[in-house]
Design a protein around this nucleic acid. Structure first.
Length: 512
RNA sequence: GCCGCCAUCGUCUAGUGGUUAGGACACGAGGUUCUCAUCCUCGUAACGGGGGUUCGAUUCCCCCUGGCGGUACCA
């Protein structure tokens, strides 16, 4: 199956667009088909610098590489197009659209109109006064406007020869009912009386979406047009165009819109729904794709975690929702955590290394870095949290009694010297080559008992021993300087015997 | 206004002519734990309203309401 994603470069690609691209990509891939990226830059006014680059970059980030169409840029910034049905940038196809518009003119499916903006405004004003709040250029007004339907043929020729500006409009037939099948919604119906004679070719020679889209989808042999629901009302225009050209229309699927929390359509004009924002915040493409897929589609089972590959396998239009979905990122954050923890440790370590090195240069060639990364993988949601969570490995923390003496753990300042001496004595007894999490844990536990108990182990009074929290909280707090961090044992192991004792001794001195 | 689409927990959603209406996120309470996070257990929470059809409607039909979209020489 050949599908396509045809954004207009009017701004940064937003998440709704990314989801539409995803669905198109999925459908193409699962049938071994082709995913086409076409750029619809027919509105010169609204084109935004850098938007095309942003679209390509974002799709690449998400793993949705197009097979055909605009696939990238050369080193000097020129677009690279692939496929034999190009060009895939509509502004390079102007001649084509004009030719097809002419065909429509000749076959009587379209007509030229010379109305000026002022005339159209006046017409709308009159209509509104007559009680028509949303005037259309349709049957009812068509006959009193200045177009090739009402004007003398010679006069039309004269005006065109004199290069008077004009548009080409679609001639919508009277009292027709269009019945179409939408792959998501089923049967949809429109009456031609509600469709206006839409402009196909603007006076600047550029086509409108309606013309360009239909011509391109046909010429590019697109099998399925999957687009946002906002296009549903103009479906009859497109159907009419296919009919006028004598072409078989593709299948259509109108996906429900993504809504903002207020309930309105999520758009790039309002709010920060641009995909780039999420990329900058550090979201993983896997999380974003997974989240977007689930917004409007459900897999049928209870599994919620899907990779792109898995999505290609399970995605189906039948399970796409009809109603709009609120773009609420709470679940995205959860998904982000899930995917963060799925990253293989080595890969995770190398991902955060440059981030940490930026703040702590020593991390760049730290041979022990992977061990440190392992400590925080299930604690971070974003890579940029790593430096803070590993700070104590690169910068000895300052001893802070307020932090170390924790009330909740029954650690009082007067108890601290005893606790620290105990820690230092016990840990010193561990041979360096035995310095492992498990050994440290065992030694502390047993020497705690040995230190405080007299008599045999069976008869000692355990109440005279320190609680685990009474020595582990201070140990962890001294080693990390943080109120929360990975566990005391694991940090001690990675820090090494020497450094651990050094920090404990320093703390003892400061507190004393 | 008109045209169109849609309607299950706060959110994403499953589901059925007879169900204790299921799951996930979030939230709350426990548990594990030296802290945090993870993890585990439990819990709160929904079929918009009115008519039909039917022995029985959340489910099928109609109306209403509500939400969204469209109504440009924008896409």
């Amino acid at each position: 199956m050949r599908t396509r994603f045809p954004p207009s470069p009017t701004g940064m690609l937003h998440v709704g667009g990314l989801r539409t691209a995803l669905y198109n990509f999925l459908l193409a891939k699962q049938t071994g088909g082709t995913f086409i990226l076409r750029i619809e830059d027919t509105d010169q006014e609204r084109s935004v610098e850098g938007a095309v680059e942003n679209i390509v970059k974002t799709l690449r980030w998400a793993g949705l590489e197009p097979d055909e169409g605009l696939t990238g840029f050369s080193t000097n910034g020129n677009p690279i197009e692939q496929g034999d049905k190009g060009p895939y940038i509509q502004s390079k196809r102007l001649k084509l659209y004009r030719e097809y518009a002419q065909k429509l003119l000749q076959s009587g499916h379209a007509y030229s109109a010379f109305d000026t903006k002022e005339e159209l405004d006046r017409m709308r004003e009159e209509e509104q006064r007559a009680g028509n709040p949303a005037p259309k250029y349709d049957l009812s007004v068509r006959m009193r406007m200045r177009n090739s339907l009402t004007m003398d043929g010679k006069e039309v020729q004269k005006k065109i020869a004199a290069s008077d500006p004009y548009v080409i409009r679609l001639k919508v037939p009277e009292s027709r009912t269009f019945i179409a099948n939408d792959e998501i919604r089923g049967k949809v119906e429109f009456k031609s009386s509600t469709v206006d004679d839409t402009v196909l070719l603007k006076s600047d020679g550029f086509p409108t979406y309606h013309l360009a889209n239909v011509v391109d989808d046909h010429l590019m042999e697109v099998d399925l047009v999957l687009r946002g629901e906002e296009w549903l009302p103009s479906l009859p225009k497109h159907l009419l165009l296919y009919e006028a050209f004598g072409w078989n229309p593709p299948k259509f699927a109108h996906v429900p819109l993504l809504l903002n929390k207020g309930g309105g359509k999520l758009s790039k004009r309002q709010g920060d729904a641009s995909a780039s924002d999420f990329i900058e915040k550090g979201y993983l493409p896997e999380a974003m794709i997974n989240f977007l897929a689930l917004l409007g589609w459900n897999p049928g089972g209870t599994e919620e975690i899907f990779s792109l590959k898995e999505l290609i396998k399970s995605f189906s239009l039948e399970r796409v929702q009809k109603g709009g979905a609120v773009f609420d990122t709470e679940k995205l954050d959860w998904l982000q955590g899930q995917w963060m923890r799925k990253i293989p440790l080595e890969e995770f370590a190398e991902s955060i290394r440059p981030v940490v090195a930026k703040q702590y240069p020593a991390a760049a060639d730290d041979a022990e870095f992977t061990k440190k990364a392992a400590l925080i993988q299930e604690r971070v949601t974003f890579f940029h949290e790593a430096p803070q969570m590993l700070s104590y490995f690169y910068e000895p923390p300052t001893s802070d009694t307020a932090l170390i003496a924790n009330k909740k753990q029954n650690v009082t300042p007067d108890l601290l010297p005893t606790i620290l001496k105990f820690l230092i004595d016990s840990l010193s007894s561990i041979p360096r080559e035995e310095w492992r999490e498990e050994v440290i844990s065992n030694v502390l536990k047993s020497s705690n008992i040995g230190l405080f108990a007299t008599g045999s182990r069976d008869t000692i009074d355990l109440s005279t021993c320190l609680n685990k929290g009474q020595y582990l909280w201070p140990l962890r707090a001294i080693l990390t300087g943080l109120s929360y961090s990975p566990g005391a044992f694991e940090v001690a192991e990675v820090l090494g015997k020497e450094e651990t004792l050094k920090r404990l001794k320093k703390a003892l001195k400061t507190l004393a």
